[in-house]
Amino acid sequence: MTAASVTTRASARWRWFRMPGPRLAGSPKVLPAVLGLPVLLWQAVFFAAPLVFLVIVTFWQVKAFRLEPAFVLDNWTRILFSTTFQRALVHTIAVAGTTTVLALLIAFPAAYTIAFRLNARARDLAVAFLIVPVFSSYMLRIYAWQIVLSPEGIINALAGAVGIGPLPLLGGAVSLQVGLLTLTLPIAMLILVFAMAGIDRTLIEAAENLGCRRARVIAHVILPSLRPAIALTATTSFLLAFGDYISPLFMTGSKPPTLSILIVDTVKSGSQWPRASVIGVSMLVMLALVLGLGQWLARGRAARKEAAR
């Protein structure tokens, strides 16, 4: 029997071979391209290109309120050597650094309580409660703090009722940190809760069975295994506080200005796009350095030694 007659017989009897479908859909290269190209184009046009353009604009000039292509370093020297920028940079780093330390100090014990003291149900509820503020109306919540802290606000009204004169709650470093912690604490706690929930509990129980005190367990078992999460929490808090516009605007009335405030002011006053871009690019470089530092800290000393070898 020849091969051809086998085929005829087989297809007649068993219909084993399908009607040929559109081969295009089956081609291995087409589907990923169809899926990937829109994503790539979208992110390229609406995310990557603007950032690249931002870098380019730092070398352009403004003439008669019009932005013109050029290649000058004037914008960079003017901004980097201006005392306004330098002061704002130092101030912003100080503020963001303070927020980072505060967020870690407050979030760590609170996350510890959620991860190790609450039962599963309460923990899920706490997590849900922390996720909501991450995605809802930061600006409104800062406005609410303004109401609470203002000279005629809720706290001063209560204080006044017991004879304490109006306290200058709004407009200082404290109110700024209240605002920035409103932004950073939920995220900081979420990162730490998830990291702690992932710790192998048998390790902790083993340490406790060996007679370790709680404090020693935290120092020798929990902290080392949380190293990457703590680094992530710190970098995230810093990143959010460093780039925030709303808290400085509403909690301190932009005085002294942070870099974000400076950007918006520079854009508003006389369309100084190139100079605003210089500030923006400087901030991005700064954030990249912080992220790099976070990565370095996350790896830990032992891992670094290993990598160096």
Binding site: A44, G243, Y245
Partner: peptide, 23 residues
């Protein structure tokens, strides 16, 4: 490719907004 999708929320909105406006 993945970073291109994942990173945008990490860029401060002030800078991203300004860059988007300019471009």
């Amino acid at each position: 490719f993945i970073l291109l999708v994942a990173v945008p929320p990490a860029v401060p909105a002030t800078i991203l907004g300004m860059a988007m406006l300019a471009f």
